[in-house]
């Protein structure tokens, strides 16, 4: 082509036969999520609320009972007890298995990388739930358990009752959680995402070990801490399998959580009452979450 020739006037044909973008594609991606959310989320919840006001029979006609189920539950002292036990359990569990790992994780990050890897391996040995429960039952055995040996043989204390003590049973149920490091992995991931230059800048600005933790690690972990705390509240309020396997609610009902009591009621065929208790628990947890969300403000600066 020589200079001066007019540019080619023919339109350039599309290479692929002219596909146009279809914005309906977005909906196709969203629909499975919406269906899932509805059938496994909202639908069971609405049905549960409805069933809690009926006799909820497995078979036969449903009879509407108004708030009768709830009245019965309010009159039952064991319900109040189980809520009290659940609150104590949740509070203990959050203090011990939620706060301690934050500091453990921070300390771990300060260790040389090799040592850190070993420590993490120790903490995250994959243990199945049931296996570790049986393991802990052995540890807590009042006659042959290693903890009894430590208490009497090493520390010279009188024999301990462990899981048979009404006073201490909740503590001993929470105790394994400390050693299992709880949500520590989340914290470690969070800590790893903090730019190294923040620590270096802080160090050059004269910050010591504790000041670095207080002014950088903790504030930067805030969103993760907040999220784990929320999950801890929801999770521990619904604790069932671990105490059930360890103590079956004993001794004397001292470790019977709400969900365990619900299971008892269910075993007795009182389906309506059990559903009503589930709804009560849902309302209590929802209230706690709402209070938490109002007190805790999301920080956009993270």
């Amino acid at each position: 082509m020589t200079i001066g020739t007019p540019a080619i006037e023919t339109p350039t044909p599309p290479v692929d036969g002219g596909k146009t973008a279809n914005r309906w594609q977005y909906w196709i991606f969203a629909i499975p999520a919406i269906i899932f959310q509805f059938f496994w989320g909202w639908y069971p919840m609405l049905i549960a609320i409805f069933l809690s006001m009926t006799n909820a029979p497995i078979r036969g006609a449903i009879t509407f009972q108004g708030l009768g189920n709830f009245e019965r539950l309010f009159a039952d002292p064991l319900v109040a007890d189980s809520f009290k036990i659940t609150f104590i359990y949740a509070a203990l569990s959050i203090t011990l298995t939620f706060l301690i790992p934050i500091f453990v994780a921070i300390l771990l990050m300060e260790m040389p990388p090799n040592l850190m890897r070993v420590m993490m391996l120790l903490w995250f040995v994959p243990l199945s739930g049931i296996a570790s429960t049986i393991f802990w039952q052995y540890l807590y055995n009042e006659q042959f358990g290693i903890l009894q040996y430590i208490a009497t043989g090493v520390l010279g204390m009188p024999p301990q009752a462990f899981l048979s003590s009404e006073r201490w049973v909740l503590f001993w149920l929470v105790f394994p959680g400390i050693l299992m490091f709880g949500p520590g992995l989340y914290y470690m991931t969070g800590l790893q995402s903090i730019p190294k230059s923040y620590y270096e800048a802080a160090e050059i600005e004269g910050a010591g070990f504790w000041r670095k933790i207080w002014t950088i690690s903790l504030p930067r972990l805030r969103p993760i801490i907040s999220m784990t705390l929320l999950f801890s509240i929801i999770g521990t309020m619904q604790e069932f399998s671990f105490p059930d396997l360890m103590t079956r609610g004993g001794p004397n009902g001292a470790s019977r959580t709400v969900v365990m009591y619900m299971f008892n009621i269910l075993s007795n065929g009182r389906y309506g009452d059990a559903t009503a208790l589930a709804v009560m628990l849902f309302i209590v947890i929802m209230a706690m979450v709402l209070v938490y969300r109002t007190v805790y403000k999301d920080d956009p600066d993270i």
Partner: peptide
């Protein structure tokens, strides 16, 4: 490129309107 679509306006390649064309078709 067609990776984003304009809310308004037109894009021509030579005289060919490609405004609604998918990126892989634009060459």
């Amino acid at each position: 490129a067609g990776l984003e679509f304009a809310d308004q306006g037109k894009i021509l390649y030579n005289n060919y309107d490609v405004t609604q064309l998918a990126p892989q078709a634009r060459g």
